[in-house]
Simulated assay, not measured.
Amino acid sequence: MNERSGARPPIVLGIDDLRSLPMATRIARTSHEGVLLLEEHRDLEIDELWLDHDLGGDDSIMPVVALLEEAAFDGRPFRIGMIYVHSANPSGAETMVRVLTRWDYRVRRATA
């Protein structure tokens, strides 16, 4: 991209405890880090958000999903081009897709 064109580099965020996600510009490894990462990008347009359900031990993505859900409920959804769910947990992934789709986020199941 031409720097003088005013185009910004894409913002691709990932929340995953294990995967390297080479396409991500920033990665959070826990749900707590994920919430902080999203809050840091609250007023920016996020091009892609990659989410894993199981984040090690008893941690899961659900606090992040709750943040996204609450923001949409309050009428200020995060501006995210596409959310990719890449979890190996089928029921967790389905829950994520269902909840986020309900709040009009664009969501796809994907492999990472």
Rank of each mutant, 00 (worst) to 15 (best):
M1D: 10
M1H: 13
N2A: 12
N2V: 09
N2K: 13
E3W: 12
R4I: 13
S5W: 04
S5F: 01
R8H: 13
P9E: 12
P9V: 08
P9W: 10
P9Q: 11
P9A: 11
V12L: 06
D16H: 03
D17H: 00
L18C: 02
R19N: 15
L21V: 10
P22E: 11
P22L: 05
M23G: 02
T25G: 10
R26A: 11
I27S: 04
R29Y: 13
R29F: 12
T30Y: 01
T30F: 01
T30C: 03
S31K: 01
H32S: 15
H32K: 15
E33I: 02
E33D: 14
G34I: 04
G34Y: 07
V35E: 05
L37S: 05
L38Y: 08
L38E: 01
E39H: 13
E39F: 08
E39K: 15
E40K: 06
E40H: 04
E40S: 07
H41F: 05
H41C: 03
R42C: 01
R42D: 02
D43K: 15
D43C: 01
L44T: 02
E45N: 06
I46W: 10
D47Y: 06
D47Q: 07
E48Q: 12
L49F: 04
W50K: 03
L51K: 08
L51A: 04
L55S: 03
L55G: 02
G56H: 07
G56F: 07
G57W: 08
D59T: 07
I61Q: 02
M62P: 00
M62R: 14
P63Y: 07
V64M: 07
V64C: 09
V65K: 01
A66I: 10
A66K: 14
L67H: 10
L68V: 05
L68P: 08
L68E: 05
A71N: 02
A71H: 03
A71L: 06
A72F: 11
D74G: 06
D74V: 04
G75F: 06
G75K: 07
G75C: 10
R76V: 14
R76N: 14
R76Q: 14
R76G: 09
F78L: 08
F78H: 00
R79S: 15
I80T: 07
I80N: 02
Y84G: 10
V85Q: 02
S87V: 00
A88T: 11
N89S: 13
N89Y: 09
N89W: 09
P90E: 05
G92H: 09
G92P: 04
A93W: 01
E94K: 15
T95R: 12
M96P: 04
M96N: 07
V97N: 04
R98E: 14
V99I: 15
L100T: 07
T101F: 04
R102C: 09
R102G: 11
R106Q: 14
V107R: 07
A110G: 01
A112C: 15
A112D: 14
